[in-house]
Design a protein around this nucleic acid. Structure first.
Lengths: 247, 247
DNA sequence: CGGGGGGTTGATCTCCTTCAATCAACGTGG
DNA sequence: CCACGTTGATTGAAGGAGATCAACCCCCCG
């Protein structure tokens, strides 16, 4: 795998932007010290494949900044995105040597990598890494199951609305904009990547985005910047308006 | 929730059929003793709903025998099965109070339940339950992601073939029949449940099963007993013929 | 005998895919 | 600076896979 010169950033864990959310979130200072000894940073450019399905993996990693995707591919070329990796998300599986999915950088990305053997040994000896990883994995399992409902039962329009909801919700939880019911956010995916995620073709994605625009559910500043005038309407379009609190 | 008289079976963990695969698999004797103190058995009949989405859950559990399903429902009634629970599989999430999915018994089923609070405390104090649960959750996450590929990208025929492959594979790993390439197994799901799992309608399921039969890929002894003359053919119909060893 | 659950099959419809043309934005080299 | 290719996106027309609506079968059980 060629990698366009991974810039090696030296950084102290205590300054790390994902310190409180990543796999190391529950670590105490001695555990953190041990992690620090086996960690190194790698950077990738947007579009680069970080890991190929079937590759040998000698590390696990956390996303520090940027976005990546997990994708599965069939022999005839059909692909399905099975995960979206945001900052603090974890890549790789302790106890496994081969990558199960393609990992592709959607934006420029920085990863905090840990050599696999020492990481596994740390997990066996001290509890907090494993505990945190269990929490994160359970969350991912919930997300995967929600996505199964989307893939199996939702219409194209509902799929688009659901995806926008998820991105919007994540964005809102960071930016905490004053206006609770309308918001604007950046869509970090191409039409093709959206199709890959939603189990659709890119043409259908384009059509449904246009339809939502025509119906006033969303507005497009440019093709990647989306304004939602009324979040409740988008939520009801998504089909799953559990509507519990903050969206 | 009414429960048709859960027969209370008293059983020693050392005799348990799932002792080596369930969440307790890695426990040492002292941990097992603690688990044994907070465990109790419950039985359910085929068709019974064990837990309703949104219900308060004061226990977690392992499936001892029988089969159950995890199902998500949209307000308008559309449903999607998001998990199949087989013996040794785990139900519930430590740290969560509300059930995220409907849990429905497909066959008569026996569950080994643990009161949630003590179970969580045991997880916090000793490592082996958490470690095993992490392994199992990672496996489930992989399965969920494989299912996302199926739901998003496979044709109806491939979906059916994939489901049969999974059931057949599981059956073969238990029964270890002599003939490596042909086998017969019982299909524990109704057409409706299959549709629910595969993101199809029951009519489409029925048609595709008939088509596979007409094409000689499978034979039906009765409507729930399936004979596969050549497993390789079924695998290629499923689309994902990684074909690594034992199917 | 009636009735209901599970299953199959047929006819029709429709939503999404497929194939294709077009466009805008952007960079690159002549 | 313009011609050209590329990449991402939109839109149209046609076709098809699966959904929907409906009839009917089989078998068990009360």
């Amino acid at each position: 795998m060629t990698m366009h010169d991974a810039s090696i950033i030296s950084q102290d864990c205590s300054d790390c932007p994902i310190r409180h959310r990543a796999v190391c979130a529950k670590c105490e200072s001695d555990e953190l010290t041990q992690l620090e000894e086996v960690k190194y940073y790698r950077s990738f450019q947007a579009g680069q494949t970080i890991v190929f399905q079937g590759d040998r993996m000698d590390f696990v990693a956390s996303v520090v900044s940027g976005i990546a995707t997990l994708t599965q591919t069939m022999e005839d070329g059909r692909t399905q995105m099975v995960g979206l990796l945001l900052p603090s998300d974890f890549v790789g599986r302790p106890g496994r040597n081969e990558a199960a999915y393609d990992v592709v950088a959607t934006t420029d990305i920085v990863m905090c990598c840990f050599r696999k053997r020492p990481f596994e040994q740390l997990m066996a000896k001290t509890p907090h890494v494993g505990q945190r990883l269990l929490e994160m994995t359970l969350d991912e399992l919930d997300a995967a199951r929600e996505w199964m409902l989307l893939l199996g039962r939702k219409t194209a329009r509902e799929k688009i609305a659901s995806l926008l909801t998820i991105i919007a919700r994540r964005d809102a939880s960071l930016n905490l904009s004053g206006d609770a019911n309308s918001l604007t956010f950046n869509l970090p995916l191409t039409r093709d990547a959206m199709a890959d995620y939603l189990g659709l073709t890119l043409e259908t994605v384009s059509r449904q985005v246009s339809a939502l625009k025509k119906d006033g559910v969303i507005e497009l500043k440019d093709k990647r910047t989306i304004h939602v005038p009324d979040m409740q309407i988008l939520l009801s379009e998504a089909g799953d308006d559990a509507d519990g609190g903050i969206f």
